[in-house]
C-alpha cells in the first residue's frame, strides 16, 4: 500500500466517522421534532386538568387559581401554543390532585392540642 492510498483511506474513514457522529447528533433533534405537541395532546391535558379540578371541588378542596389556569391553558391552545398550554394544564391538574388530597386529609380537623388537649 502506497503512502497516498493510506492517506486516502484514512480520509475516507474520517469522513465516514464524521458522518456517523453527525447523524448521531441530529437524531435526538429529529426525535424532539416528532414529539412537538399538537392540539389533541393539549386538549387532552386540559381535559385531565378539568377532571382533577372537578374532583377537588366535589370535596370542597378546590384551590383559588386552578380554574383560571385551565382557562388560560385553553386560550394558549386556541392560539396554537400547545406546549405552553400543556405545561399550564399539567400545573392545574397537579393543583386539583393536591387540593383533593388536602381536603380528604383534613376531614377530621379539630381544635389544636394547645387549646383543647383531647388526650388528657
Amino acid at each position: 500500500m502506497t503512502e497516498d492510498s493510506i492517506i486516502a483511506s484514512r480520509l475516507k474513514r474520517g469522513f465516514r466517522n464524521s458522518l456517523i457522529l453527525g447523524l448521531l447528533a441530529v437524531l435526538p433533534l429529529g426525535a424532539a421534532w416528532s414529539e412537538t405537541p399538537d392540539q389533541s395532546q393539549a386538549l387532552a391535558s386540559i381535559e385531565a386538568a378539568e377532571a382533577a379540578r372537578q374532583r377537588a371541588d366535589s370535596v370542597g378542596g378546590e384551590w383559588r387559581d386552578t380554574a383560571t389556569m385551565i382557562e388560560q391553558a385553553k386560550t394558549l391552545a386556541a392560539d396554537g401554543r400547545y406546549a405552553a398550554a400543556i405545561e399550564l394544564a399539567n400545573d392545574a391538574k397537579r393543583q386539583g390532585e393536591l387540593g383533593y388530597d388536602q381536603a380528604l386529609g383534613e376531614q377530621h380537623a379539630d381544635f389544636p392540642a394547645y387549646v383543647l388537649d383531647r388526650s388528657r
Binding site: G61, R64, D65, Q102, G105, A109, D110, F111
Partner: peptide
Amino acid sequence: GKRFYFARRGQLNFSCAHCHFA
C-alpha cells in the same frame, strides 16, 4: 362548622385557626 374552621385549605395550606389562634 368546626371542621371547616380547622381544616387546612388552599395552596398556602392554612386553616382559619393558623392566623387567628396561636
